[in-house]
Amino acid sequence: MATIQINVNGESREISDIDPTTPLLWALRDHLGMVGTKFGCGKGLCGACTVHLNGTAIRSCSTPVSAVNGLNVTTIEGLAHDEDHLHPLQEAWMEHDVPQCGYCQAGQMMNAASLLATNPKPSDSDIDNAMAGNICRCGTYQRIRKAIHTAAGNGGAA
């Protein structure tokens, strides 16, 4: 058992008495009560658990909490600057009504945010390649791509 300190969405959080092998996913969900990050496969295959570690997308289901000790983690709850200023991806997701069941969408948006941070004007194939690790069981891929273009300010480009 260990005590872990993580900066989650800009706030320092301490988790005491936790098995250091606990995946970050379950630390967030069960220990910190932040359930926006989702469990899909537990093996890094579906991307539902995607969060940012120091700004880069990682799969929280396959990252032990001990590996993020002292680091900066951003989750879907912290993607917006604040409640009145959502991230452009969140706005675009609503504009295009991307979600069906919506379960994968937190992971999709976190992954897309990581893409846009490094590639602000991605092409269709840039998006396809970057997002290939994120499964949407409902099949909202067409809208995800459109929404990423919108968030990137690519207008209606497809």
Binding site: G33, V35, K38, I76, M94, D97, P99, M109
Partner: peptide
């Protein structure tokens, strides 16, 4: 074209799903 009523909560990670339910003293 009417977007889903839960979208604002979905895109900000609010607890909507079965798996998100949390009750005081809950065990797993």
């Amino acid at each position: 074209f009417i977007p889903g009523v839960d979208n604002p909560d979905l895109v900000t990670g609010k607890p909507l799903f079965g798996i998100d339910q949390t009750l005081p003293g809950m065990v797993y």
